[in-house]
Design a protein around this nucleic acid. Structure first.
Length: 186
DNA sequence: ACGCTGATGAAG
DNA sequence: TTCATCAGCGTT
């Protein structure tokens, strides 16, 4: 089966590398008897306490606690009072870092052909459409228990990956200029 | 360019 | 306890 779930070990390394390797992988959501599969096409890296765009730059707080924990866990939070963002924790325990999943393409499965999921081109829309909220915060991304996990995909070649500045972090001083956003070229 | 909306963290 | 801010989105 090509439905191999990415292991916890997969997430325990360099965040930039993981952000790129997640491109082409599949985000899988279990929703009331239905399974929706979507191809990850856009990610962003948030790395450590020095990165002013990273929530963990505030230090260890109730909200950022999950980022300081072991890799392979979901970090889901509410933003702007009406949307949610989905991240997966990376690096070893104690080093706060995560990859934000920003956009996905729909996948035609043989089970539910004519699928109702059309993909999502932003982190808020992605969470809205896949019914992801704070209840998933702290759940595991490397098992099916939580109803949300990631499976292996066809790796995207380096020359098919574009790096650009992260979105919505103009407040982050020099850190806003880091090319830590990754997209799959058309 | 703006308003929506409520969680978050810093200030008092 | 208040207050400004925010890893977004849809409309003007």
């Amino acid at each position: 089966m090509s439905d191999k779930i990415l292991s916890q070990h997969f997430y325990k390394k360099n965040t930039l590398e993981i952000a790129k390797k997640l491109l082409g992988c599949f985000l899988v959501r279990r929703l009331d008897g239905r399974t929706v599969k979507a191809r990850i096409i856009e990610t962003e890296a948030y790395i450590g306490q020095d990165d002013l765009a990273c929530h963990a730059s505030k230090g260890r707080t109730k909200r950022t606690e999950i980022m300081f924990g072991p890799p392979g866990y979901w970090y889901a939070y509410m933003i702007y009072g009406m949307y949610h963002c989905l991240n997966v924790i990376t690096e070893k325990k104690g080093f706060p870092a995560a990859v934000l999943i920003r956009a996905v393409d729909p996948v035609k499965s043989n089970k539910d052909h004519g699928a109702s999921f059309n993909g999502a081109d932003g982190p808020g829309k992605l969470c809205r459409d896949l019914k992801i909220d704070r209840l998933l915060n702290g759940a595991k991304a490397y098992t099916r228990e939580s109803g949300l996990w990631i499976t292996q995909g066809e790796p995207v070649a380096a020359d098919k990956i574009a790096a650009s500045k992260r979105i919505g972090v103009d407040y982050a001083g020099e850190w806003k200029n880091r090319l830590w956003r990754f997209t799959v070229k058309k």
